[in-house]
Design a protein around this nucleic acid. Structure first.
Lengths: 183, 183
DNA sequence: CATGTCTTCTTTGGTAAGCTAAGTATTAGG
DNA sequence: CCTAATACTTAGCTTACCAAAGAAGACATG
């Protein structure tokens, strides 16, 4: 491409395509970093990533039903049962029957479960938080607003996208296993 | 919390702690949306998320060794072997021996593999892209810069974080399985 | 009270992803 | 030629996940 053309594209018309790519690349880097960290972190705590997520949610909310866990995590109840089993085996959480509705089970963290999280609070966050704290006030504000905007764009998508994507039925016979998570 | 106190915290002192939390929440929402989409998308293409990632990388780079795939994806070579096997079984990629070094295998996409990607280009991106394109010019610029900043904060972290996290050795005898990915 | 229907959770049986450890070739260096 | 390193695969195991089928409480309605 000629230099003149390049200048025109970048300074005059400024195609948004380029920016879109940039944003996607940055997003992928974030995703990737988070994913890799989640593995290391969970390993450091002596749990698997999925188990850790359960423990975090349970600890944060005090008491959760498997149903709620499943919908918050976007997995099936059967999966939650399996994960909770593992945590129960390690005495990190307990199941207690609900008294109002005895079909329900409440999952609660034991003192040990709580302690486990204290020992190694989310390392990725710890480190990210440190960098974030160093930023100037206006930068933090801008970052938050940008991130929320991106999150909104994706969440909003989900609503009208789900039905569309679910037409993936055509090659595999699945029926929207994510329908649950509209709280 | 009393209303007065709330006002004080939010309008007067404006603790950065709140902002950090907000940014983390937004980040989690992004992560979550992406994860759920990856599943739906892969399913729509008739592949699993991991298989799709392999196919995408192979298609994008034309020809990749399992070693490179493993390091780019952050998984072990054995895992790559298994994933490539699946794709080979579906005739979406092929293995070809390298001529310069016959220990190496190059993975390349078949026309069908390439076609499969054309059929369903990244749906999450498609949708996100559409929303992104609707934004005003300055908003796009700000978003990109914010995302890149976050990505930088996380990537930079990785370098000095890895050794720290690897002390998770204390409970399980692992030796940095991610050491590979510094290209 | 009985009966049928929901809901909530667990069980079962199966697939995929991921790891480590132990091969098999192939190249590179004495 | 022999040894060491590299690149990949195989084998065996664990975890995550799902769908389908069960079990048991909740609830409405006859």
């Amino acid at each position: 491409m000629h230099l003149a053309a390049w200048c025109k594209d970048n300074f005059m018309t400024m195609k948004p395509r380029d920016r879109t790519d940039d944003s996607l690349i940055a997003l992928r880097r974030i995703l990737r970093a988070t994913e890799l960290y989640a593995r290391d972190l969970a390993h450091a705590v002596g749990l698997t990533p999925a188990q850790l997520r359960v423990l975090q949610i349970v600890d944060e909310r005090g008491s959760v039903t498997p149903k709620a866990l499943a919908s918050q995590m976007g997995v099936s109840q059967a999966t939650v049962t399996a994960l909770v089993d593992k945590l129960v085996a390690q005495r990190l959480v307990e199941r207690v029957q609900s008294e109002s509705d005895r079909r329900q089970t409440n999952v609660v963290a034991t003192p040990q479960g709580h302690g486990r999280l204290e020992d190694a609070p989310d390392a990725l966050q710890q480190r990210y938080v440190r960098a974030f704290a160093k930023l100037a006030d206006w930068e933090q504000a801008q970052l938050v607003s940008s991130l929320e905007r991106v999150a909104d764009m994706m969440d909003a998508q989900k609503l009208d996208a789900a039905p569309v994507l679910t037409t993936g039925d055509i090659k595999g016979g699945r029926k929207g296993s994510h329908d649950l998570q509209e709280n």
